[in-house]
Design a protein around this nucleic acid. Structure first.
Length: 508
RNA sequence: CGGGGAUUGGCGCAGUUGGCUAGCGCGCGGCGUUUGGGACGCCGAGGUCGUGGGUUCAAGUCCCACAUCCCCGACCA
């Protein structure tokens, strides 16, 4: 039942909240009655995002600013990412370990760029056990320093290398402006840290990590993106070079979804991590670090949702199939229940849930599970019992298919696979359609003040131009794509010679 | 951290120039009838109005501070 309030209210929407231009005062349809109020994604993207996060029970706000509670359904997404990524990390020969949450302040100060990069956003513990601490403790914003103090102790010989450690943990960064999953004060992530005898080996590790991330994003989360090198001003504080995976969100802003860093010997020198090589000579190690955070969950929500709520690609969906029984009358109801339990037992290889609640009508449940993004719904009522079929409905397209029980697993597998493939394809298509090849600064400005998106433009690699472009358009260099070809061009800002097209966008 | 908006049962809101017992819808609990796109009836529970000060005979309403959320900036995974 949809009831319009007597006078529809108007909400001012900035023209920048959608990739497709939207009018300044879009009417927001408000539904009262049985329907949860959800802002349409197509009308007000940022409000849709904060609405859907709460209404789908992914997360709730914590009493502390910028912190969220991962509710079971939201945490299940992180668990899914963790499971898939952990297997890839182990396959790279990396072992899991755990280092302390607290870091002595002096550790952080050992690497100059690192401390400068993180200083503004540190949480510091000044008291413990009722006493003021002699030396304040930092709540880790990342663990390079505390880990490398130990690496220095553990690494003596070339035989100790490579050392490959990963940890799954929480970190704290005191961000000024927060958004659930995308930028929270405390967040969960994995951070891999390796030490190698040769620079080349370290570089291989950096690329292997970036490759693993790209596979997680494409194969599991169905989020298309671009892997590339960060510019000097955008790279990690203390790194020699950084790689990132940049994904385009529906509002035309880019989400830096993971990073992997070539740390060179910067930290090795700061923390005295040396080894004796085969010739007996003492050398500094070459290091890498790489991370993927719960930000990825935010990307997942943004990229795939629609006006009806969430959509999770089957590989990552906590529930892949929701069975909604339609009970009908008493006698029929019994038959339906029995039929449903038979069918469920045939679907053990999938993550299946039966919504057997009798206090909600089927229609209510359809909407509920659409909001929650379950990719496939099976409707099973008296009609299906009679014909020995099920009705399958795709969350992404709404397409209905009647499936006979004999070919149930086969067809369900196909429907899930198709949705997984189509989701990545939609993401890829959206990204490509919103990637602009730009040669003049006027064009650049026009795109940034209009639809936004990715811009591929020549840049002379002078930090001054990068800073000016950011100041004037909000766009920053996102990365130099790995597949960028060397060309002769002119910097989009200053006309000086440039060799590559960089990827620009407004960052989240 | 700057600018703007918000905060009233679980959710969404109303609450007049300060005034009496703070309302409404949904949700929630009970009973009954229902079940193919957000069912219905009856009964019922639930609020020191974000927090702390202040003004006043009297504060949800006025003033100050703080907290949190949302939007826009500067900073960032």
């Amino acid at each position: 039942m949809k009831i319009f309030l007597g006078s529809l209210f108007f909400i001012g929407v900035t023209p920048k909240t959608g990739v497709t231009p939207i009018s300044y005062c879009d009417m927001i349809e408000v539904m009262i009655g049985k329907k949860k109020v959800i802002t349409k994604k197509s009308e007000d993207f940022s409000r849709w995002y904060t609405d859907v996060v709460q209404q789908a029970e992914l997360a709730d706000y914590a009493p502390v600013k910028g912190c969220i509670i991962f509710r079971p359904y939201g945490y299940a997404l992180w668990e899914g990412i963790k499971k898939a990524l952990d297997a890839k990390i182990k396959a790279m020969g990396v072992e899991n370990a755990y280092f302390p949450l607290f870091i002595p302040q002096e550790f952080l100060q050992k690497e100059k760029e690192h401390v400068e990069g993180f200083a503004p956003e540190l949480a510091v513990v000044t008291h413990g056990g009722g006493k003021k601490l002699e030396e304040p403790l930092i709540v880790r914003p990342t663990s390079e320093t505390v880990m490398y103090a130990m690496f220095s102790k553990w690494i003596q010989s070339w035989r100790d290398l490579p050392l490959k450690i990963n940890q799954w943990c929480n970190v704290v960064r005191w961000e000024k402006r927060t958004l659930p999953f995308i930028r929270t004060t405390e967040f969960l992530w994995q951070e891999g840290h390796t030490a190698h005898a040769e620079h080349k080996e370290a570089l291989d590790q950096v690329h292997a990590a970036a490759q693993a991330y790209e596979e997680i994003f494409k194969d599991y989360l169905a989020i298309y993106g671009i892997t590339g090198f960060k510019s000097n001003s955008e790279k990690f504080a203390g790194a020699a070079a950084s790689l990132s995976y940049e994904a385009l969100m529906p509002d035309g802003k880019a989400l830096q979804s993971s990073t992997s860093h070539d740390l060179g010997q910067n930290f090795a020198k700061a923390f005295e991590i040396t080894f004796q090589d085969q010739k007996g000579k003492n050398q500094y190690v070459w290091q890498t670090s790489w991370g993927l955070s719960t930000r990825a969950v935010g990307g997942l929500i943004m990229v795939h949702g629609d006006d009806n709520g969430l959509f999770f690609p089957p590989q990552i969906a906590p529930i892949q199939i929701i069975i909604v029984p339609i009970y009908g009358g008493d006698e029929e109801g019994g038959l339906v229940k029995q039929y449903v339990s038979e069918l469920k037992s045939k679907l053990i290889e999938f993550r299946v849930k039966v919504d057997s609640r009798e206090e909600y009508s089927p229609g209510w449940k359809f909407n509920e599970w659409e909001l929650k993004g379950v990719p496939l719904r099976l409707e099973i009522g008296p009609r299906e019992v009679k014909s020995q079929t099920v009705m399958a409905i795709r969350r992404d397209t709404g397409d209905k298919t009647s499936i006979t029980t004999s070919e149930l697993t086969e067809k369900v597998t196909m429907l899930l696979k198709t949705q997984q493939k189509d989701a990545l394809e939609r993401s890829r298509k959206f990204t490509e359609e919103n990637t602009h090849l730009v040669d003049t600064y006027d064009q650049f400005k026009e795109i940034m003040s209009g639809p936004r998106g990715f811009i591929k433009a020549f840049w002379c690699e002078n930090p001054g131009c990068e800073a000016k472009i950011k100041e004037e358009t909000k766009a920053t260099t996102r990365c130099l794509p790995l597949d960028a070809v060397e060309e002769k061009g002119k910097c989009v800002y200053c006309d000086e010679p440039a060799t590559h097209r960089w990827l620009f966008a407004q960052a989240y």
